[in-house]
Each structure stands twice: as structure tokens, then as C-alpha cells.
Nucleic acid binder design. Structure first.
Lengths: 197, 197
DNA sequence: TTTTATACAGAACGAACGTTCTTAGAACTA
DNA sequence: TAGTTCTAAGAACGTTCGTTCTGTATAAAA
């Protein structure tokens, strides 16, 4: 946290939670509720500081908008040992923007929901979401999205006696040996899983 | 396009362009400029129709907000045939969709890198990043982050003859049977994996 | 031709807005 | 003890907001 006032990170948290719900930054009056204060002028002072700290900015129409920094998430160091881990995470550690981490080239990246268990030994489960970068070439060993019989299929690219093959990560499924050319749609660059709560 | 009035898609495009620039929907007066008209009442009529068509919605504070449909893109590009499974483009105008998918309450969510293979049968690998929601209670069957010997550990919460235990998803590792109380740090709500490229 | 619907323009209105200024208690300093 | 920040509260103010109602030009329909 780069801002100076001790309670500002608390205010920022509340603002982030509100934004996660409504995807907009409300009026000063509403922000009084969100922050738990009753002074519009103090709300402005808080926003001005968060702006100076780089979490917010304003459009030419003087509308408040979050910056990239606004979406950064704390990343714990797993090797925390001394003291309370919770204290450590609250004060130090890195910050990460999840989308930046997984997506290099937005225009070439798409998300594809995964169906079936054919890659389960690679830790890719039914219901996971694949982050795929579109491109037509891949290397041996890459997990690729190929188009077989008009359907996406996610398999490991391999080569067998001069021919490309698609190898599943599940002994129950058969290796795919395409006749003719193999159409690569993209390669797997990330994986997302969401647990029900 | 599901809306009825012929020029609405043109208005929608202008609105999408504005949003791409400023990441906010401006006032009716400003929208007059954006749309190239001079009537606030007509702006409202347009927004109402875009709302009915599902491109916009309003927060409880009656602030206009774009919906997912607002960001949807035609997926005609690339030589993909009909019958494609549903695909989400990752570039929602540089917006943060993955973040949005995984995180409900930013202030309670923390990312923890995973070390070791103790949960490999659950498809959780060394080097993955766990998305953890901080809370002190969990249900049987939840994958939890517990604090054991001042270290984070990720295990499935279970109960054995009246006592809580932490069950790994790897036969090589032993079940953890904490003596005394078990301190829960949070529960696993998501998983992120990044493949080297 | 007359009527009717469409696609906007324009004015009016009170409510809500953001900004600024003043006030005030609490905490810290000297 | 007296002074001084700091953190808010609160009022005041002119501006802008969204809404509603009415007016109007064009075009299609009758």
C-alpha cells in the first residue's frame, strides 16, 4: 500500500467490495454509506488520496474510475513461518493482477470451458476453463486445442514416426492419430477452476 | 442483436466505443454528444431499449452498468465452423473477466502459491495458485487452508470419529489429525495455473 | 388527402450532485 | 496548560442530474 493514511486501506477494501458487486463507483452520498462515515467532504478527501496513490483516476468528465492497481490481489508467500501468517499477508507480500498474469495478448486469447476427463492426469478436470492463446503452430509437448471433427479437443501434441498425434492424459482415452493435416486452434497457456461455495 | 429499433445497434456501437475509452457510462447530457443527438429524453429511451435488450442494467442506485452481453463479440474470426462450443473472448475491452469470475469479495480474497504434491489427485499441482477466501469456518468436504505448525497447508476437511482431520489427495501423504483445535485460515474458491510458453 | 405512428427536440422541475468553507472534537506536542 | 494537527461532521451553494411532459417534422398508412 502506497498511501499514507492508516485507514485508507480499509476504505479501499470497502470500495473494492462494492465495486465487485456493482461494477461502478457510486456517488459521494452513497460512498458515505459504503465507508461508514457521514461527511461527503471526507469522502472526497479519501478518493483524492486513493487517486494520488494510483488506485483511482478520473475521466475528463470527472467520473471516478478504478485503475489496474485497483484490481491487484495480495499474494501470500507460502513459506511463512514466524508469527501469524495473517499478519504477514496483511502487511507485506506481492500483489498480482490475475488477468495480467494469465493473458499476454488479449486479442488472441479466449476462454474455453473443458468438457470430459480426457486430460485428468494433467490436472485438467471437467468444468475447468482453459485459457487458450490462438495460434496455428505448436511444439511437441505443448497442450494444444485442436479441431477434430468440428469440435475442439484439448490434448498434448506429440509425434509418432513422423506424424503428429494428440495424446490424452487419461489411459481410458485413445490417442488421436489424425489422417492428413492437423488443425491447431491454439495452445493452452492457463487454467482456471472455480469451486462451488 | 435482439433490439427492435434499427438505429439502436449504431447507438450501441457508439456507447461501446465510449466505454472502451473511459470505462464508464456518462451522464445523459454527455450521451447526447456521444450519440449525436440533442435530446436527453431520447437518450433515456435508447438506454431503456438497450436495457430491455439485455446490454445494460441498472444498479439499485439507478446507475447504468454494462452487462456481459455488452462486451460480447462476434466470434466469426478464424476458420472455425458452426457447432463450436461456447467461447468467451478474453478481451472484454481490457476488462477483468477472470478476476471477476473467481473473486466475490476482494477484501477477503488472497492468492496463495501451492507447494508440493499433496493434493495432486484433486488436480492441484505444485506451482498452481490457490484463490482463497479468508474465513474461519468451513464445511466437511471443503478444501481448506489450515494453519499447521505456522505453515499454510491445503487439504480437504473431513471428520473422523468426532474430530476434524485434514485429508490430502495423495496416498503418499498422511492424514493430518490435529491435536486440540484446528485453525482454519480460509477455503479454496478457485485455482489458477499458468503454463510456460 | 388525412391520419397515425415514428424519431427526435426542447423546456421545466425538483432532486441529487460535487465542491468548498466552516466548525468541532480528539489526539498529540510543546 | 495551551497550542496544533488530524479526522471528520455539517452546512451552503451553484451546477448538473434524470425524469416527465409537450411539441414537431417526417414518413408511412389509410
Amino acid at each position: 500500500m502506497v498511501d499514507y493514511h492508516p485507514k485508507d486501506s480499509e476504505y479501499l477494501n470497502k470500495l473494492q467490495d462494492y465495486y465487485a458487486d456493482w461494477k461502478s463507483i457510486p456517488s459521494y452520498a452513497k460512498l458515505c454509506e459504503v465507508f461508514g462515515i457521514t461527511s461527503k467532504s471526507w469522502v472526497k478527501a479519501i478518493l483524492d488520496r486513493l487517486c494520488a496513490a494510483g488506485f483511482l483516476e478520473r475521466t475528463p468528465d470527472s467520473v471516478w474510475v478504478p485503475t489496474r492497481l485497483f484490481f491487484a490481489r495480495p499474494l501470500a508467500e507460502s513459506s511463512v513461518q514466524a508469527g501469524m501468517p495473517m499478519v504477514v499477508t496483511a502487511t507485506q507480500g506481492d500483489f498480482f493482477i490475475i488477468d495480467d498474469m494469465l493473458i499476454d495478448t488479449p486479442s488472441k486469447t479466449i476462454l474455453i470451458p473443458i468438457k470430459g476427463e480426457s486430460m485428468i492426469d494433467a490436472g485438467i478436470h471437467d468444468g475447468d476453463v482453459a485459457v487458450v492463446e490462438k495460434r496455428m503452430t505448436a511444439n511437441i509437448g505443448d497442450i494444444v486445442v485442436a479441431i477434430v471433427d468440428n469440435e475442439f479437443t484439448l490434448k498434448t501434441l506429440d509425434k509418432e514416426s513422423g506424424h503428429f498425434i494428440l495424446r490424452p492424459a487419461n489411459p481410458v482415452f485413445a490417442v488421436i492419430r489424425p489422417q492428413g493435416t492437423l488443425e491447431i486452434f491454439g495452445i493452452l497457456v492457463g487454467l482456471i477452476r472455480k469451486y462451488r461455495r
